[in-house]
């Protein structure tokens, strides 16, 4: 709210603030707040699902990139280089309008948004995982091999747990990035935080107040996420 008061103070005087639009003490404000805050679940659910999917996909891509098999390594390179090169909004439009035609199936905005975020983020996760996996010394895989563990067991039980611990700060960054980028899904009509703010602006015509509130919503969300990541880091530190 300090930010809001600050903004109010630096107005030219020509602008009349109308905070009633998001005021919990105003009946109209209450209705607006209810409408805006309903977007939280939409933003959080799509972001968390996308992160979960992209972590799995990214880890798989990273393992492919480090495989002995040349074809698998190429899959990694092509995926990372091409997906990373496409702007998220462009990818979203293509997934939402194009992919259903290619696959011959219909999906809604949630699915389109989830796929876009996950596919795009997976390219970044793949590079993060690759760095993490490579940072685990050869001595670890040799010790595991000498004990008779298979390559897959070694990856799952020895290498990945150590890699994940090291890349946690980078994964936290990606999670925050995905949370923010989920706002782009508003473009195709997914009713998350940004979409709801946009819709309310059209009804109330109070963009400054509503968008300021939107900024605060994201701020709180990101701070919570960042706190969560730090908690996880502490818990995994040994």
């Amino acid at each position: 709210m300090a930010l809001a008061i600050g903004l109010a103070g630096c107005g030219t005087g020509a602008y009349t603030w109308g905070w009633y639009v998001v005021s919990p003490f105003d009946s109209r404000g209450q209705a607006s707040l209810k409408f805006l805050l309903a977007g939280w679940w939409a933003t959080v659910s799509i972001s968390v699902s996308a992160i979960a999917l992209s972590v799995v996909l990214g880890a798989a891509l990273a393992i492919a990139g480090l495989a002995r098999n040349r074809a698998l390594r190429w899959i990694n390179r092509i995926y990372v280089e091409s997906v990373r090169a496409v702007p998220l909004l462009v990818l979203l439009l293509w997934v939402y309008y194009g992919l259903p035609v290619v696959l011959g199936i219909e999906f809604g905005v949630f699915m389109a948004g989830l796929l876009t975020l996950a596919l795009s983020d997976a390219a970044f996760e793949a590079e993060i995982f690759r760095a993490g996996i490579q940072s685990v010394g050869q001595g670890q895989t040799e010790a595991a091999a000498s004990l008779g563990l298979s390559r897959w067991q070694t990856m799952r039980l020895i290498v990945l747990p150590q890699a994940v611990k090291r890349i946690l700060p980078a994964l936290g960054n990606q999670f925050i990035y995905v949370l923010k980028m989920s706002s782009l899904i508003s473009v195709v009509g997914y009713q998350e935080l940004t979409r709801r703010a946009n819709e309310l602006v059209l009804i109330e015509y109070r963009p400054l107040e509503i968008y300021t509130f939107l900024v605060l919503e994201y701020l709180v969300l990101i701070l919570l996420a960042s706190w969560g990541v730090r908690w996880l880091e502490r818990r995994m530190a040994t």
Binding site: G137, Q140, A143, A145, S146, L147
Partner: peptide, 17 residues
Amino acid sequence: IRREVGMVFQQFNLFPH
């Protein structure tokens, strides 16, 4: 063979996690 042959390394190579 690896199941029947144990190895001890110069750098120990214990699993730190």
